[in-house]
Every structure is written in C-alpha cells, then in structure tokens.
Design a binder for these strands. Structure first.
Lengths: 332, 332
DNA sequence: ATGAAAGCGCTAACAG
DNA sequence: CTGTTAGCGCTTTCAT
C-alpha cells in the first residue's frame, strides 16, 4: 500500500496525499478528512526510505557511547532516547568501545547513515590527558550537528554540555581536609577529559588547604571492585585516611579494603564516590557520592539541538553544577 | 557526490559502480580497482536512503526494551548491539516503558521504520500473569522477524530465547530447604513471564520438600532497596529465615533489613538474588545470585536471526540453563 | 486548493 | 563483464 494506492482510493493526486501526510496547511480540511479516512482504513504508513530520499533526513540521530552496559552511560542513553523520541526522533545506538581507533571508526560509520545529529556520550570523546586526537569529532562537526555529553572540545559545531567536575571534587576534597584528613587518595580509571578535571580539582583543593600533592596518592586502577581492594591491600607503605574516587565502583573497592583491614568508615577512613549510582546505596555503610546530574546534561543537549534546528543560537559550552549527596562514608 | 559522479569520473556506468559498492563478483578486478580509487579519492559514500528504497531494507534492526537504564537490559542491549554490528546491522533503540499501551505503541511505531528484525528485550513483552495481551507481538511477527529475549510467546514467527528461570529457582530454593530453612520468602517486582516462572519454581520446590506454600510469603514489592527493607521491617508477624528474590535489588533490600535487625547472614537468614549484577558483589556480605546468562541469550538470538535470513530453520524456543553463583549470603 | 511531472540516488532485470 | 533503463515511494516545484 503506497501513496499511489491511497491517492487513487481517495480520488486525489499523490501530491495531495503527500501534503496530508505532512499536514500541509494548503489542503482543505475536507480533503484532509477524506484522505485520512482512506489512509486509516488501509493502515497506510509512508515509506521512510522514500521519504528520506526526498528530504535527505529520516529524523534519526546517532548516539555513540563507549559501552551502554556502564551504569552512567546507560542512564544517559535512556534519557536521551526518551527526550529525542518525544520530539519524534529515532535513535541509532552505537557502542564504540574505549580505544581511539574504535571510537573514530564508530563516528565515521555512523555519519554515513545521514543522521540529523550526533550525540557523543561520555568524556571519552573529548580526548584524554595523553593528548589523544579528537580530529574525528572535529570532522564530524563539519558534516553534522554534534553534541558532546560531559566533555569539552573547543570547536565550532561541537556543542558541549558538561557537569562541573572540577568544582565538585574541589569542594569535596576541601571538605575532607576540613574534617582533618591529610592523606587523601585520588582513585581514577581513565584519562578522559572529565577525569582530568576531577584530578585538577583534587590537586587544587589540596594545595589551597596547605597539603602537598604526591604522585603516589594519585592511583590509576581498573574499575573493578575487587581489583581496587586488592591493589590497596598491597600498598603497605602508603598512608591515607580518605579517598576520593572518580567513580562509585572505585570508591566501593576502597570500602571493601577498609572492611578487610577492619578500619572504621568514616572514622579511620572517609570515602567519597562519583556518579551517585545505585551501587552507592547498596554498600555498607552507604557511600557519599557526587551526582553529576546526567539527566540535566542530556535534557540540555537535546533542547540545544531543537533550538539549533529552529535556527536559534546556542552556546558552545554549557556547564551544569554537580550535587554532593552526603551519606555515611564521610563526616560532613 | 553520488553514483553518477563516480561513474563519470571512473568512466564506467552507474551499474558498474553499484556493483563495485556491493562487491559483486561479476566485475573485473581491474575495474573494481579503478572505481574504488575514484570513490576513495572523493570520499564517496552511498546514500543509504536510496539504497534502502531499492532494497527495502537498511540493514537495521529494532531493539525495544522497557528501560535501558536497568542493569539487566543495558547488558543485553550492549551485547545485542555489539553482535549485530559485527554482522553489519545498525540498531534503532526504543525504550518503551512498562505499560501495556506504551509497549504496544513502541512496537507499532518501530515497525514502520521498515527494520529487518525486531528484538524485544525482557520478558515484559511476553505478557504478565494477569493475562495481559500480547497481540502486538503476534502482529509484529506477521510483518517481520521477531526475537523475544527471556520470554516466551507461543506464536510462529516469534523466536524465543530464554533462560531456565523455573529450574534455577527450583534448585536454589531446594538447596535452601536442605540447609534447614523453612520460612522462605519470595520477593518479586513484576508479573512478567520470567517472574511467573521463577514463582513456579519457588512453589514447586517448597512442595517437593514438604513445605506448604503460603500467600503471605510471596511478596510483591517495588524494586527499590530501601522500600524493600522498610516493607520487611513492617511485617512484624511474618516469620522467615531465608529469602529468594527475583532481582538483586530486592535481595539487597532484604540484606539491609537483616542488618537493621542485626540478624546474621546467612546464619539467621539466607538470601539469594537474581541476575548476578554488580550490586551483588558490592554489598556486604556479598550476595549469592543466579546468573541468567544474558550474553548467551543475546548471542543465540542474533545467531538465530542470521540463520533465518539465510533460510536455515530455527527452533521457536531455545532454553539456556542458568548458573548459580555462590557467595556469602547462603550456606551452600 | 489541487494536479502533473520532475527528480532524489540506488538496485536489478535485461540486453549485449 | 558491462551498459541501459525501469522502477522504488515520496517531496516539491510549477502550473492551473
């Protein structure tokens, strides 16, 4: 059942049917009714390909993230999808993995789908501390609207929405020092843009509170609870009385360490996580965590897209403050 | 830059270019080389719409799930996407929510996208215990290949891949009785197909071990850790020494209850969860949980699709056994 | 307000 | 092995 059939059955031309489908104002209400009736009766649905060919758009956006099975990204993708759907957009999902080649390949591939916009979820697309290239993001921006969720790339055409990770960690670590903590560990598991921001916050907070930054207290470790615990267990000669982690999983690894060593939390050791995931309330004691408000980030990004599509200007960088959720692993 | 431009630049016809793009065997290697060179030099990429129009397929499948931010579904979606991508398929994601109308609407909408197959993730699409309709799944199967992950609908054209939840719970509850437990709670949070299977397993295990099934020990509760804990705290007159939950979140709620009541686990109360999520290793003590092996389910489903597409027959129902992961909240 | 007709870029049958 | 050509179903001028 195609547009010709409907046209014939309704006794009009295909142009009129097309206009009705697109709710064009220049069709009389009467004709619209008639045509709609025929369409309904025959369960007609326009062929999206043919339509795409004509319009060169399918009202589809691409969402690329390293891994949807990650809690943080899953939440972001869920929210993006929901909001985009509410505007009538479909979402093509692409999980790229974390490697540079894979990320670049994913972006290249998805660009060929003639999507209307590209959403990059997670700051892994903003390069890493080791000066990783983000050329593929820049290239994408030449072709298409790109939105970077929780990362920043200075480039016209790339609209960045990010949470203020620097300030959040700065404040948390400062608060830790104010409760008398001196040996504060920084646990991280990537070199992404946001992680580097968190690290800056950690370092500045220490400095501003008269504590010197030592490299051995900044620990890079895989985000597996038991791996973190065991790693900590092995650092016999490292003294610390608090840990700030860039992710709840890392923080819980520290919690497991404390338990193993029979250290009291937050007395002997204070712990603060990041992302305020479900993990943070399932451990014991419950974990204080920084909420990066990913829903707000996603909402902002989608709304920016709609604004841009309507020709309204949008800032290239929007920063949303984080929110500290105080629970039992800290004294403040 | 379209196929005509390439044809002209390469000095061949568009048909030849098309054949090269599709790697047809009936083009000489020489011509292929020449055409490919021109394509590369001009960064040519075929227009997917036009191609879709001709083939009436875009090598795209639909993945529908109630909510990707759920851990179990996120894992499944991630795995499906990965495997489908490896076969060259794109994935359109649709989060439908849990309500009947929304699920039906989602399926209807996504069918109009002329996808090549539909993957329904989670047994919520297999109706619920209250006899919910699954007509929309049946209808979908008229139009398209549909795969149901972890649910069962008896209908030709619907290919179901599910884990043996009945047996898994039957075995777990039997094991619980063998360690002397008599008052075993069954915590559940939905009426989905798989939940009903789990309940059957629970009931049969009790019966077969000489324990009578009482309605007040089967508790429907929202899957929120604190909600579960508080609900249990309020049941003053209910005696129990074990809990079998249909999801790790529920089980951890029970664990929080035990802690609040200063009950020893698994001594005073044994607990077993379901899904073997990250939650299960972040709590204290770590939670024994049933792994439904969703990766295997997803892999099987995708492979079934490929087989079907190649004209090979596939069984309408494939059952994968679960795996019990023993940790610290049970005595076996 | 409506219709006729020219594409959109590609695939596939057919012809050579 | 290669070219010609007729669609695929819709949008969009351009007439009327």
């Amino acid at each position: 059942m195609n547009i010709y059939d409907i046209a014939e059955l309704a006794g009009v031309s295909i142009a009129t049917v097309s206009r009705v489908v697109n709710d064009s104002p220049k069709v009389s209400e009467k004709t619209k009714m008639k045509v709609r009736a025929v369409m309904e009766a025959n369960h007609y649905t326009p062929n999206v390909f043919a339509r795409g060919l004509g319009l060169n758009s399918m009202k589809t956006v691409g969402i690329v993230c390293p891994d949807v099975s990650d809690d943080y990204m899953a939440g972001s993708v869920a929210y993006l999808e929901k909001r985009l759907r509410s505007y009538g957009y479909d979402c093509i999902l692409y999980c790229s993995g974390y490697e540079y080649e894979d990320k670049a390949a994913a972006v290249h591939l998805i660009l060929q789908k003639r999507i209307d916009a590209l959403f990059l979820v997670g700051s892994h697309y903003a390069g890493n501390g080791s000066g990783e290239d983000v050329d593929y993001v820049r290239e994408a921006a030449d072709t298409i609207l790109v939105f970077l969720i929780n990362g920043y790339v200075r480039c016209p055409g790339v609209y960045c929405v990010l949470s203020d990770n620097y300030q959040a960690v700065y404040d948390a670590v400062s608060a830790l020092t104010e409760t008398g903590k001196k040996g504060i560990l920084f646990l991280y598991d990537s070199n992404s843009y946001s992680t580097m921001e968190k690290m800056r916050g950690y370092e500045d907070a220490l400095k501003d509170n008269g504590i010197s930054v030592t490299e051995d207290r900044k620990i890079f470790v895989q985000n597996k609870i038991l791996t973190v615990r065991d790693m900590l267990l092995e650092k016999k000669d490292l003294e610390f009385d608090a840990v700030a982690a860039t992710d709840d999983g890392l923080a819980i690894g520290a919690l497991k360490y404390a338990r193993k060593k029979k250290l009291s939390v937050p007395g002997d050791i204070s712990i603060i996580g990041f992302n305020n995931s479900e993990l943070s309330i399932c451990c014991e004691p419950e974990l204080s965590s920084i909420d990066s408000r990913s829903e707000t980030l996603c909402k902002t990004a989608v709304d920016s897209m709609m604004a841009l599509l309507k020709g309204r200007p949008v800032r290239h960088k929007k920063v949303v403050p984080c929110r500290l959720v105080k629970r039992r692993t800290t004294n403040f």
